[in-house]
């Protein structure tokens, strides 16, 4: 028994170390390379002005955002999978991200004029508009999949349809923008840490921290709910009520991530899966481990996206898609 209780801690410690390693690699790499020693110097306040600027204004915010978004998406995926008892559920495939993306693109298009000069207030409004779109998408999926109850299969099929519909609308609006905004929107929809500055971090940090804590608090309900509706009801859970609350938490988490990083697919699927493999299905450990693994994977993918094809930068969402799709297909082939 003792080994079992220690395992999640070990996994978290290892993942944390990995995050620290990638964190420093990511700080060093980029168009301007900064040697590890210099990085440390900058942190102790003895670096050159240029290095300070690069590290504190460009790289560090981006890394912190990556960690936050990775954690948020993964936990959203973990909740969705347990609540729908469907191991293929994920905010990207279900179309929740697409709804959030559409709302953000519309918000920028109508209220901000251009994505490049987003005001301070506008940045803080982004999560709210993403939330509105994501909730609309989730609501549509729920309503359209409802037919004397919601079966997991119908949920996913309807999600694919909602995804296609929102993407078509996005395309129509995108083509009305001027070329610069068009490119920006295209990159952003593919998933990219775009507005990497401290404002953005302050705008989404509270959402993600509060919701992560809330999910941890609700972990015991998630444990019971993944056993199935009947058993959960029998154990005295108000299944439908808890499900709605947890769904709302997942959608809100996904929406705040969409506001910061656009549509990231597959991460919400992979991280919880790996976490479940490593530490088992108890949500008290599954949720934090998913968050750690998600942060690690996202930071790794973003570092790759910045450097693999340098000096061009590819949207991090594409890296995750290309790496995540095969894993998804593998799961699909295994599933009955």
């Amino acid at each position: 028994m003792k080994t079992k209780t220690n395992k999640p801690l070990i996994v978290m410690a290892v993942t944390f170390l990995l995050i620290v390693v990638v964190f420093f690699i990511s700080l060093n790499l980029g168009v301007i390379k900064i040697a590890p020693l210099k990085t440390l110097q900058v942190f102790f306040g003895q670096g050159t002005a240029r290095d300070e600027l690069v590290l504190f204004e460009f790289r560090l915010p981006r890394i912190i955002l990556s960690l936050l978004v990775g954690a948020g998406i993964s936990v959203a995926g973990a909740i969705l999978q347990s609540v729908s008892q469907n191991e293929l559920a994920e905010p990207g495939i279900l179309g929740i991200n697409a709804g959030g993306s559409l709302a953000v693109v519309l918000f920028i298009y109508f209220f901000q004029g251009s994505a490049s000069d987003l005001s301070f207030f506008g940045t803080f409004m982004l999560p709210f508009s993403a939330l509105a779109g994501a909730i609309l998408a989730a609501f549509l999926i729920y309503i359209l999949a409802w037919k004397k109850g919601v079966t997991p299969i119908r949920l996913i099929l309807v999600g694919i349809g909602v995804n296609a519909g929102f993407n078509a609308l996005l395309l129509i609006f995108q083509l009305k923008m001027d070329p610069h905004d068009f490119m920006q929107a295209a990159v952003w929809i593919s998933g990219s840490i775009w507005g990497a500055n401290w404002n953005m971090i302050w705008a989404i940090l509270p959402w993600i921290v509060i919701l992560l804590l809330f999910t941890l608090y609700k972990a015991r309900y998630l444990n019971i709910m993944q056993l199935g509706d009947q058993l959960a009801t029998g154990l005295g859970t108000a299944v439908e009520k808890e499900r709605r609350i947890l769904l709302l938490a997942a959608v809100t988490l996904a929406a705040s991530c969409v506001a910061a990083a656009g549509g990231i697919a597959f991460l919400g699927l992979i991280a919880p899966h790996v976490a479940r493999r490593l530490t088992g299905p108890r949500h008290q450990t599954l949720i934090p481990v998913s968050a750690f693994i998600g942060s690690f994977l996202f930071l790794l993918a973003d570092t790759l996206a910045r450097n693999v094809l340098a000096p061009s930068e590819i949207p991090v969402g594409l890296v995750i898609s290309v790496l995540g799709a095969p894993y998804f297909i593998y799961l699909l082939m295994k599933a009955n």
């Binding site: 593919s190 697919a265 597959f266 898609s321 290309v322 995540g324 799709a325 998804f328 297909i329």
Partner: peptide, 8 residues
């Protein structure tokens, strides 16, 4: 999934 992969 295949579409995501190729599009990526």
């Amino acid at each position: 999934a295949v579409t995501y992969f190729f599009t990526g």
